[in-house]
Structure formats: C-alpha cells, structure tokens
Amino acid sequence: MNHDPYSWGRPSDETYGQYSDAIAHAPSFPKMNTQQPIVTGTSVISMKYNNGVIIAADHLGSYGSLLRFTDIERLFPVGKNTVVGISGDISDMQHIEALLEELETENNYDNSHADDEESLQPSYVFEYLATVMYQRRSKMNPLWNALIVAGVEDSKPFLKYVNLLGVTYSSPTLATGFGAHLAVPLLRRVVDRESDVEKTDMQTATDTILQAMKVLYYRDARSSRKFSMAIIDNDQGLVFNKELEVENMKWNFAKDIKGYGTQKV
C-alpha cells in the first residue's frame, strides 16, 4: 500500500500503468475542427474596370441541396472603399464579419485621422484576412471560405482572392467556387489581361457581371435569383445595390426538352 497522500484515490500504478493527467482529465469527445462546410453560399464574382471594381454574390444559403436560407447578404463593406465578398460556410462567414467589424472599430480608436489618411484600405483588409485564413489552416482548423476583397486604393482598382488554405492571388477578373469555372471565362471575354481594364467602362463591366450572374443562375443548382452587386468607383465611391434579380431569362427551349421529366415522350 502506498501511503503517500498524493496517490490517495488514484488508480494504482501497478494495475493501470503510470498515472497520466491527460487520460484522467480526457474530454468525453476528441477535439474536433471543421471538416466540412454546413450551410454554404455559392460563388462570388468580380472584375476590374477603368475606374474601379464590381463584385456580386447571390442571397442563398444552401444546406446541402436544400435551399435553406434565401435572404443572406454575402457582400460586406469595410471602410469607405472596400467590399469583401464571401462564399463557403455561412457560420464561418459570420465569424469573419465580426472580425471585420472589430478591425474597423479598433482602427477608429484614438485615431483622429481614421476617416482619411489612416482609413482602412483594401490592401490592409486583404492582408489581415489572408493572415487569418493561413493561420487557421496551419492550425488544421480552417475557416471554410473563399473570399474576394474588392476596392479602390490610390485611385486604382484592387482585387484579390484568398481561400481556406490561405492561398492568395490577384487577377483583373476573379470568381470563387463554381463561378471560377462558369463565370471567369465569360468575364475574361471582356477583360483578359491587365491592359484590357483601361478599355472597359463601368457600363460594360456591369453588363458583363449581370450576364455572368444570369448564366450562374441558369447552371448553378445552388444559386438564387436574388443577388447583390457592389460597385466601388474611384469617383462615386461605394454604390451598393442589394435588390437585384436575374432578369430577361429565356426558357422557351425548355418545352422542347424531352425525356427527363414526367411527360410522356
């Protein structure tokens, strides 16, 4: 019998091996991190034009194949000339939204120049988000999202992407998820290289984005008709339209499709 008070009430070493704090205080379940997204938002698409950038995302939050939430805003203005578009897991998106609000609040503290010289710029917001995303993936606990940061900095359009792995890149046209396959080729027909940006005005860019949103609504089963579009223009500042719908769709071909539905061929 061991008379040391330290070992009172503990399982004996002879029977159970050396006492381990890790085992004695082990939680009932192993620690778990995000392994898959739950409620998700589909593509965010964006492009540069000669005086700014345009970014768009629809209002749907899908639970697998169920169209679960139909009024979710996925574009977030930060400061005066930045918009962050978020696709992927919606709860992680809302966490990022809280982080961005904190970032803005703290930038304002003890800073009498917070609305001009020291206001948050798109590149600052992007660097912050990219750092968060990479840190989380390095902890094997990712935020399951792909983000696009769009804005105007030093009178020039800014557009950059980061995802759950912390992978970042920039291009005059950018899209996340399904949009990277479906929308980007359409956007690149207008702006393929950096030099095309100069030749593209706001109207052309807007039309291109609207067209791409329409094609996505036709072909992406997890997309919704309602969407938001933000234009960050060097002169007009942020123009944020949250009430858009895909319009002028043509469905007359549908009646000729035979053999998929319940109709008799």
Binding site: Y169, S170, S171, A180
Partner: peptide, 11 residues
C-alpha cells in the same frame, strides 16, 4: 492554378 483552373495569368 488549382487543378485545371487558371486562377491568374499574372501572379
């Protein structure tokens, strides 16, 4: 790139 997508032509 990632998989078969070209993410950017100028990175």
């Amino acid at each position: 790139t990632t998989d078969y997508s070209i993410n950017s032509r100028s990175e």
